[in-house]
Design a protein around this nucleic acid. Structure first.
Length: 228
DNA sequence: TATTGATCATGC
DNA sequence: GCATGATCAATA
């Protein structure tokens, strides 16, 4: 995505209230209008537009972390996630959480894990669209500031423990996206041919594809509907 | 047709 | 290379 002109960039919000106020101010805006305000040209091909909406909303709200391994609003400890929903409010895609260090994760603990840090506090921004709607005609919905706790945290933690345990015992080749009630592990790589070398459970080197944690759409939907 | 596996773009 | 931002598109 091209850079937005300097005068279109928002300063970082000073507190969570200001962030939420700004986010509510985007409710109803189309992506086309948001891009126009920010002076950004949208890609023509949908497959070249992955991630663009998230970047636009970051710009509009004054997110600063860039590609650092920090929340989008480091001072506030808030992570921003756009989430696609259909006309009924059904979530249509899974949500990427973070990459997995396949060597380190075998010794990781839930408290202190990247998944827990990433999801501790999330500002969800729904992006509503009819099926196959073009990017510029999708529009932002009502934002939700969410803190992971209670039932939601228990479900995510249980999956995380099961998945990490399975990697530790059987190695990464035991893992498929079918595993996990709410949290799953899927490829996250430039291409399927790109390999990383990791030490398997028995210490033997194994070549595999880079992977990340994702939240299933059904879970994110429950969050947006206030059920988690 | 829901879901998994694959892929696209950018920054440092 | 690996982090960020996700959605596309083939398959089950």
């Amino acid at each position: 995505m091209v850079h937005a002109p300097r005068n279109a960039l928002a300063a970082p919000p000073l507190d969570v209230d200001e962030l939420c106020f700004r986010a509510r101010g985007l409710d109803g805006l189309t992506i086309g209008e948001l891009a126009r305000r920010l002076g950004v040209t949208l890609p023509d091909e949908p497959r070249r537009a992955k991630g663009v909406v998230g970047e636009l909303v970051e710009l509009a709200l004054g997110a600063t972390a860039g590609s650092l391994d920090l929340p989008d609003f480091p001072q506030l400890g808030v992570e921003l996630k756009t989430v696609p929903v259909d006309e009924q409010g059904r979530v249509t895609e899974s949500t990427y959480v973070c990459a997995i260090d396949l060597d380190a994760i075998q010794h990781a603990e839930w408290r202190g894990s990247r998944v827990r840090r990433k999801l501790a506090c999330v500002l969800w921004m729904p992006v509503q669209a009819a099926k196959q709607a073009i990017l510029s005609e999708r529009h932002l919905g009502t934002p939700l500031l969410w803190r992971m706790r209670g039932e939601a945290e228990a479900a995510i933690e249980a999956d995380w423990r099961a998945l990490v345990g399975r990697i530790a015992v059987g190695g990464i080749d035991e893992i498929s996206a079918h595993l996990g009630e709410v949290l799953q592990i899927r490829p996250k790589a430039r291409s399927a041919s790109e390999r990383v070398v990791v030490r398997g459970a028995d210490g033997v080197k194994v070549e595999t594809v880079r992977r990340g944690f994702y939240l299933r759409a059904a879970f994110t939907e429950a969050v947006l509907w206030g059920e988690m």
